[in-house]
Protein backbone atom coordinates (compact mmCIF):
# COMPACT_ATOMS: atom_id res chain seq x y z
CA UNK A 1 0.00 0.00 0.00
CA UNK A 2 1.38 3.39 -0.92
CA UNK A 3 2.31 6.02 1.66
CA UNK A 4 -0.25 8.38 0.19
CA UNK A 5 -3.09 5.92 0.77
CA UNK A 6 -1.92 5.26 4.33
CA UNK A 7 -1.82 8.96 5.06
CA UNK A 8 -5.29 9.37 3.68
CA UNK A 9 -6.59 6.54 5.84
CA UNK A 10 -5.00 8.06 8.90
CA UNK A 11 -6.57 11.41 8.06
CA UNK A 12 -9.94 9.83 7.50
CA UNK A 13 -9.73 8.04 10.82
CA UNK A 14 -8.80 11.28 12.56
CA UNK A 15 -11.67 13.16 11.01
CA UNK A 16 -14.07 10.30 11.77
CA UNK A 17 -13.31 11.00 15.44
CA UNK A 18 -14.34 14.61 14.95
CA UNK A 19 -17.53 13.50 13.21
CA UNK A 20 -18.32 11.08 16.03
CA UNK A 21 -17.93 13.92 18.53
CA UNK A 22 -20.27 15.99 16.37
CA UNK A 23 -22.92 13.26 16.17
CA UNK A 24 -26.26 15.06 16.48
CA UNK A 25 -27.65 12.50 18.92
CA UNK A 26 -24.95 12.82 21.54
CA UNK A 27 -26.29 14.08 24.86
CA UNK A 28 -26.60 17.85 24.94
CA UNK A 29 -26.20 20.09 27.98
CA UNK A 30 -29.93 20.35 28.67
CA UNK A 31 -30.25 16.56 28.65
CA UNK A 32 -27.36 16.21 31.08
CA UNK A 33 -28.97 18.84 33.32
CA UNK A 34 -32.31 16.98 33.22
CA UNK A 35 -30.70 13.61 33.83
CA UNK A 36 -28.15 14.47 36.51
CA UNK A 37 -29.61 17.37 38.51
CA UNK A 38 -33.01 18.12 39.99
CA UNK A 39 -34.92 21.36 40.57
CA UNK A 40 -32.93 23.25 37.94
CA UNK A 41 -34.10 26.82 37.56
CA UNK A 42 -32.79 28.56 34.49
CA UNK A 43 -31.53 32.10 35.08
CA UNK A 44 -31.11 34.27 32.05
CA UNK A 45 -29.34 37.38 30.88
CA UNK A 46 -25.98 39.06 31.43
CA UNK A 47 -27.55 42.22 32.95
CA UNK A 48 -25.67 44.27 30.36
CA UNK A 49 -26.92 43.62 26.87
CA UNK A 50 -28.94 40.46 26.41
CA UNK A 51 -29.40 36.77 26.94
CA UNK A 52 -27.26 34.38 24.95
CA UNK A 53 -29.09 31.12 24.35
CA UNK A 54 -25.86 29.29 23.47
CA UNK A 55 -25.22 29.23 27.22
CA UNK A 56 -27.89 27.98 29.61
CA UNK A 57 -27.37 28.32 33.34
CA UNK A 58 -28.96 28.20 36.75
CA UNK A 59 -28.87 26.57 40.19
CA UNK A 60 -29.91 22.95 40.66
CA UNK A 61 -29.65 20.16 43.19
CA UNK A 62 -27.24 17.25 43.03
CA UNK A 63 -27.70 14.76 45.88
CA UNK A 64 -29.06 17.49 48.12
CA UNK A 65 -26.25 19.93 47.32
CA UNK A 66 -27.01 23.14 45.43
CA UNK A 67 -24.69 23.63 42.48
CA UNK A 68 -24.57 26.32 39.79
CA UNK A 69 -24.79 24.59 36.42
CA UNK A 70 -23.58 26.42 33.31
CA UNK A 71 -23.84 24.64 29.97
CA UNK A 72 -23.07 25.35 26.35
CA UNK A 73 -26.13 24.15 24.48
CA UNK A 74 -26.09 23.10 20.84
CA UNK A 75 -29.75 22.17 20.47
CA UNK A 76 -31.20 18.90 19.22
CA UNK A 77 -33.14 19.71 16.03
CA UNK A 78 -32.93 22.36 13.31
CA UNK A 79 -35.10 24.81 15.24
CA UNK A 80 -33.41 24.50 18.62
CA UNK A 81 -29.99 24.42 16.99
CA UNK A 82 -30.74 27.82 15.45
CA UNK A 83 -32.13 29.15 18.76
CA UNK A 84 -28.96 28.09 20.57
CA UNK A 85 -26.70 29.30 17.74
CA UNK A 86 -25.19 25.80 17.36
CA UNK A 87 -23.56 26.18 20.76
CA UNK A 88 -21.43 29.14 19.72
CA UNK A 89 -21.64 31.76 22.48
CA UNK A 90 -21.60 35.51 22.05
CA UNK A 91 -19.91 37.68 24.71
CA UNK A 92 -23.22 37.78 26.62
CA UNK A 93 -22.99 34.02 27.17
CA UNK A 94 -19.62 34.35 28.90
CA UNK A 95 -20.82 37.37 30.86
CA UNK A 96 -23.91 35.50 32.04
CA UNK A 97 -21.66 32.61 33.06
CA UNK A 98 -19.38 34.98 34.96
CA UNK A 99 -22.31 36.64 36.71
CA UNK A 100 -23.58 33.30 37.93
CA UNK A 101 -20.13 32.01 38.88
CA UNK A 102 -19.69 35.05 41.13
CA UNK A 103 -23.13 34.36 42.55
CA UNK A 104 -22.17 30.74 43.21
CA UNK A 105 -19.05 31.95 45.02
CA UNK A 106 -21.16 34.27 47.16
CA UNK A 107 -23.45 31.45 48.27
CA UNK A 108 -20.75 28.80 48.51
CA UNK A 109 -22.20 26.70 45.68
CA UNK A 110 -19.87 24.57 43.56
CA UNK A 111 -19.92 25.35 39.82
CA UNK A 112 -20.39 22.70 37.13
CA UNK A 113 -19.70 23.74 33.52
CA UNK A 114 -20.79 21.59 30.58
CA UNK A 115 -18.62 22.27 27.53
CA UNK A 116 -20.08 21.72 24.07
CA UNK A 117 -19.04 24.28 21.48
CA UNK A 118 -17.18 24.24 18.18
CA UNK A 119 -15.88 27.73 19.05
CA UNK A 120 -16.97 31.10 20.37
CA UNK A 121 -19.09 32.82 17.74
CA UNK A 122 -17.19 34.77 15.08
CA UNK A 123 -19.43 37.65 14.02
CA UNK A 124 -19.62 41.41 13.78
CA UNK A 125 -21.79 41.85 16.90
CA UNK A 126 -19.65 39.47 18.94
CA UNK A 127 -16.55 41.50 18.06
CA UNK A 128 -18.25 44.86 18.67
CA UNK A 129 -19.27 43.74 22.13
CA UNK A 130 -15.86 42.37 23.04
CA UNK A 131 -15.76 38.61 22.49
CA UNK A 132 -12.06 38.49 23.41
CA UNK A 133 -12.68 40.62 26.51
CA UNK A 134 -15.52 38.36 27.67
CA UNK A 135 -13.38 35.22 27.28
CA UNK A 136 -10.36 36.80 28.97
CA UNK A 137 -12.54 37.88 31.92
CA UNK A 138 -14.05 34.43 32.18
CA UNK A 139 -10.56 32.86 32.35
CA UNK A 140 -9.51 35.17 35.20
CA UNK A 141 -12.82 34.64 36.98
CA UNK A 142 -12.54 30.84 36.88
CA UNK A 143 -8.89 30.89 37.93
CA UNK A 144 -9.58 32.91 41.06
CA UNK A 145 -13.11 31.72 41.94
CA UNK A 146 -13.35 30.79 45.61
CA UNK A 147 -15.61 27.78 45.22
CA UNK A 148 -15.09 24.27 43.80
CA UNK A 149 -15.40 23.95 40.02
CA UNK A 150 -15.86 20.97 37.71
CA UNK A 151 -16.03 21.20 33.90
CA UNK A 152 -17.12 18.37 31.63
CA UNK A 153 -16.34 18.32 27.91
CA UNK A 154 -19.44 16.63 26.52
CA UNK A 155 -18.72 16.48 22.80
CA UNK A 156 -16.82 19.38 21.31
CA UNK A 157 -14.47 21.71 23.15
CA UNK A 158 -13.26 24.20 20.59
CA UNK A 159 -10.92 27.16 21.07
CA UNK A 160 -10.88 29.83 23.74
CA UNK A 161 -14.64 29.59 23.53
CA UNK A 162 -14.41 26.25 25.35
CA UNK A 163 -11.42 27.05 27.57
CA UNK A 164 -13.25 30.10 28.96
CA UNK A 165 -15.50 27.69 30.89
CA UNK A 166 -12.95 24.92 31.38
CA UNK A 167 -10.26 26.27 33.72
CA UNK A 168 -11.76 24.28 36.57
CA UNK A 169 -10.44 22.33 39.56
CA UNK A 170 -11.37 19.15 37.72
CA UNK A 171 -11.87 18.78 33.99
CA UNK A 172 -13.64 15.63 32.83
CA UNK A 173 -14.43 14.59 29.28
CA UNK A 174 -16.51 11.96 27.57
CA UNK A 175 -14.00 9.65 25.90
CA UNK A 176 -15.18 10.30 22.34
CA UNK A 177 -15.22 14.08 22.73
CA UNK A 178 -12.70 16.37 21.02
CA UNK A 179 -10.87 19.29 22.62
CA UNK A 180 -9.00 21.51 20.20
CA UNK A 181 -7.26 24.83 19.80
CA UNK A 182 -9.71 25.58 16.98
CA UNK A 183 -12.11 23.52 14.86
CA UNK A 184 -10.22 21.43 12.26
CA UNK A 185 -11.70 23.58 9.47
CA UNK A 186 -10.22 26.73 11.01
CA UNK A 187 -6.88 25.04 11.68
CA UNK A 188 -6.76 23.91 8.05
CA UNK A 189 -7.56 27.43 6.85
CA UNK A 190 -4.72 28.84 8.95
CA UNK A 191 -2.11 26.12 8.44
CA UNK A 192 -2.79 25.12 4.83
CA UNK A 193 -4.88 28.10 3.70
CA UNK A 194 -7.61 25.65 2.75
CA UNK A 195 -10.51 24.78 5.08
CA UNK A 196 -11.18 21.75 2.87
CA UNK A 197 -8.07 20.07 4.27
CA UNK A 198 -9.82 19.56 7.60
CA UNK A 199 -9.05 15.84 7.70
CA UNK A 200 -5.35 16.57 7.27
CA UNK A 201 -5.57 19.16 10.07
CA UNK A 202 -7.44 16.69 12.29
CA UNK A 203 -4.71 14.09 11.79
CA UNK A 204 -1.94 16.58 12.53
CA UNK A 205 -3.58 18.18 15.56
CA UNK A 206 -4.83 15.04 17.33
CA UNK A 207 -8.11 16.54 18.48
CA UNK A 208 -9.26 13.64 20.68
CA UNK A 209 -9.59 14.39 24.38
CA UNK A 210 -6.86 11.80 25.05
CA UNK A 211 -4.37 14.42 23.79
CA UNK A 212 -5.67 16.97 26.31
CA UNK A 213 -5.59 14.21 28.94
CA UNK A 214 -1.97 13.50 28.02
CA UNK A 215 -0.89 17.08 28.70
CA UNK A 216 -2.90 17.33 31.92
CA UNK A 217 -5.61 19.66 30.68
CA UNK A 218 -8.20 16.93 31.26
CA UNK A 219 -8.15 14.85 34.47
CA UNK A 220 -10.48 12.00 33.68
CA UNK A 221 -11.99 10.40 30.59
CA UNK A 222 -15.55 9.19 31.17
CA UNK A 223 -16.16 5.86 29.35
CA UNK A 224 -18.99 5.81 26.82
CA UNK A 225 -21.19 2.85 25.95
CA UNK A 226 -20.36 1.21 22.59
CA UNK A 227 -20.48 2.48 19.86
CA UNK A 228 -20.74 5.91 21.47
CA UNK A 229 -22.83 8.12 23.74
CA UNK A 230 -25.25 8.84 20.89
CA UNK A 231 -26.45 5.22 20.92
CA UNK A 232 -27.20 5.09 24.66
CA UNK A 233 -27.38 8.67 25.91
CA UNK A 234 -28.98 7.61 29.21
CA UNK A 235 -26.01 5.40 30.07
CA UNK A 236 -23.56 8.19 29.21
CA UNK A 237 -25.51 10.73 31.25
CA UNK A 238 -25.53 8.42 34.28
CA UNK A 239 -21.76 8.04 33.97
CA UNK A 240 -21.35 11.82 33.76
CA UNK A 241 -23.50 12.26 36.87
CA UNK A 242 -21.48 9.71 38.82
CA UNK A 243 -18.19 11.32 37.86
CA UNK A 244 -19.35 14.85 38.73
CA UNK A 245 -20.62 13.70 42.15
CA UNK A 246 -17.42 11.87 42.97
CA UNK A 247 -15.23 14.85 42.09
CA UNK A 248 -17.47 17.34 43.89
CA UNK A 249 -17.35 15.21 47.05
CA UNK A 250 -13.56 15.39 46.99
CA UNK A 251 -13.42 19.09 46.16
CA UNK A 252 -16.01 20.10 48.76
CA UNK A 253 -13.92 18.37 51.43
CA UNK A 254 -10.90 20.52 50.51
CA UNK A 255 -10.40 24.02 51.99
CA UNK A 256 -11.15 26.64 49.34
CA UNK A 257 -7.75 28.36 49.82
CA UNK A 258 -6.12 25.08 48.93
CA UNK A 259 -8.37 24.66 45.87
CA UNK A 260 -7.47 28.10 44.53
CA UNK A 261 -3.78 27.53 45.19
CA UNK A 262 -3.79 24.15 43.44
CA UNK A 263 -5.80 25.54 40.53
CA UNK A 264 -3.26 28.31 39.95
CA UNK A 265 -0.36 25.87 40.16
CA UNK A 266 -2.05 23.52 37.75
CA UNK A 267 -2.75 26.07 35.03
CA UNK A 268 0.63 27.73 35.60
CA UNK A 269 2.14 24.48 34.33
CA UNK A 270 -0.45 23.89 31.62
CA UNK A 271 0.71 22.69 28.24
CA UNK A 272 4.27 21.74 29.25
Amino acid sequence: MSTTTETTEREQAAFARVELARHPERPRAHQVIDGVFSDWHELRGDRRFGDDRAVIAGPALLHGRTVMVIGQEKGTDPMTRAVHNFGMPHPEGYRKARRLMRQAEKFGMPVVCLIDTPAAYAGVGAEERGQAWAIADSLLCMLTLRTPTVSVVLSEGGSGGALALAVADRVLALENAVYTVAPPETCAAILYRDAGQRARAAAALRPGVDTAYGIGLVDELIPEPEPGAHAHPGVAIAAIGGAISRHLDELCATPVDELVRRRAARYRAAGG
Binding site: S159, Y179, T211, L217, Y267, R268, G271
Partner: peptide, 14 residues
Amino acid sequence: EGIASLAQMARCSV
Protein backbone atom coordinates in the same frame (compact mmCIF):
# COMPACT_ATOMS: atom_id res chain seq x y z
CA GLU B 1 1.22 22.95 19.12
CA GLY B 2 -2.48 22.09 19.10
CA ILE B 3 -4.25 21.90 22.44
CA ALA B 4 -1.03 22.77 24.33
CA SER B 5 -1.12 26.22 22.75
CA LEU B 6 -4.73 26.70 23.89
CA ALA B 7 -3.61 25.96 27.44
CA GLN B 8 -1.26 28.98 27.26
CA MET B 9 -4.22 31.31 27.55
CA ALA B 10 -4.79 29.84 31.01
CA ARG B 11 -1.09 29.85 31.89
CA CYS B 12 -0.68 33.52 30.96
CA SER B 13 -3.87 34.38 32.85
CA VAL B 14 -2.37 32.80 35.98
